[in-house]
């Protein structure tokens, strides 16, 4: 059987869930995995809840539908815990990483399905600290590196350089690198 890891990002339009899923795909591809990343497009409104998906496998990926039973869920904004069912389709042992200032224990009570490995990281604070703006998507990749083998910190950093390097000023790019490392260090695993 192929080893397939499926990731679902929850974000709001403009928070960079789509970019983060592409960056994750690039990073995983660099590590030799087969990848597929795609956003769920609705009406593309800034601030509206949206999902983005990544499949990472050791065999060619042929499936062409939304991820239904992800092993990893990443929530870019903890206000989504109220409006979105972020544990939708999860099975026992799935990893949920939430960008929040709260602890895993506090967040667990807000989930519909609790049989998950819950991780929290204050990616907003980290991005404000390092990048100077609330851009939680890149630090979340650092947090993911801590709890999964689909990406490493160095892989995530290299992929961000590749995907965003031509768009960002050098100091902003460097701040993103720091944000990834810090999130890797600071993520709390319940």
């Amino acid at each position: 059987m192929a080893k397939l890891t499926e990731v679902r990002w929850h974000g709001r339009g403009g928070q960079g869930a789509k970019t983060a899923s592409y960056v994750l795909a690039i990073a995983s591809a660099e590590q030799g995995w087969e990848v597929q990343a795609f956003p769920e497009y609705g009406a593309e409104r800034r601030g509206a809840p949206m999902r983005s998906y990544v499949r990472i496998s050791d065999a060619p990926i042929r499936l062409r539908c939304a991820v239904q039973h992800p092993q990893i869920v990443i929530v870019l904004d903890d206000s989504l815990l109220k409006s979105e069912n972020v544990t939708d389709g999860l099975e026992e042992g799935a990893v949920v990483i939430v960008n929040t200032s709260e602890s895993p224990e506090e967040v667990r009570g807000k989930l519909d399905y609790q049989d998950v490995k819950l991780c929290t990281v204050d990616a907003t604070a980290i991005s404000l600290d390092t990048i100077g703006r609330n851009i939680p998507n890149t630090p979340m990749l650092g947090a993911l590196a801590k709890v999964s083998d689909v990406v490493t910190v160095e892989g995530a950093q290299e992929a961000v350089r590749k995907q965003l390097g031509t768009h960002l000023r050098p100091e902003v790019l460097e701040a993103n690198m720091q944000a990834i490392s810090r999130a890797y260090e600071e993520v709390q695993v319940a």
Binding site: S21, A25, Q36
Partner: peptide
């Protein structure tokens, strides 16, 4: 090619 399913999918 299929809209979004392929056009907006990142793959190798």
């Amino acid at each position: 090619l299929d809209g979004f399913l392929v056009s907006h999918s990142y793959e190798l």
